[in-house]
């Protein structure tokens, strides 16, 4: 009984994710963890830019945090303008982020 309900829970969690997700993830969330494992930013940037390109042919938008996190990676490689552009993209896609994005943009990245 206990195992069955746990199974049902797992399956419903997973099927819910697969069928009705709001956003296009394609492994991005695992890359967030990869960021903390000393993978070089340039490698991470390449992967995320791929996801970004793929997302253009998708119905679902890129999730909250995606643009801003990619911006941070660019900032780490000294590309401040790209960081600013992406912070603005995050703000445009997700107005809830406005205060924080403005804070970062004012600070100059």
């Amino acid at each position: 009984m206990v195992r069955l309900s746990a199974l049902v829970l797992l399956f419903s969690l997973l099927s819910a994710c697969a069928d009705k997700s709001l956003y296009y993830w394609n492994g991005y969330e695992d890359q967030l963890y990869g960021y903390y494992q000393d993978r070089p930013p340039s490698e991470l940037i390449e992967e995320l830019e791929k996801i970004k390109t793929q997302s253009q042919s998708q119905q679902k938008p890129l999730p909250p945090t995606f643009y801003a996190h990619l911006g941070l990676l660019y900032q780490k490689t000294g590309q401040t303008q790209k960081f600013k552009d992406l912070a603005r993209e995050e703000k445009a896609s997700y107005p809830e982020s406005a205060a924080f994005m403005d804070f970062l943009l004012k600070r100059g990245g």
Partner: peptide, 26 residues
């Protein structure tokens, strides 16, 4: 390593629940 693993694992479920999530790395 638990702190960063859990932090990263929190983003998707909360975003998919329908909330804006602030970029955890930033």
């Amino acid at each position: 390593s638990g702190e960063n693993a859990v932090l990263s694992a929190l983003v998707r479920p909360i975003a998919e629940a329908g909330y804006y999530v602030f970029p955890t790395t930033l």
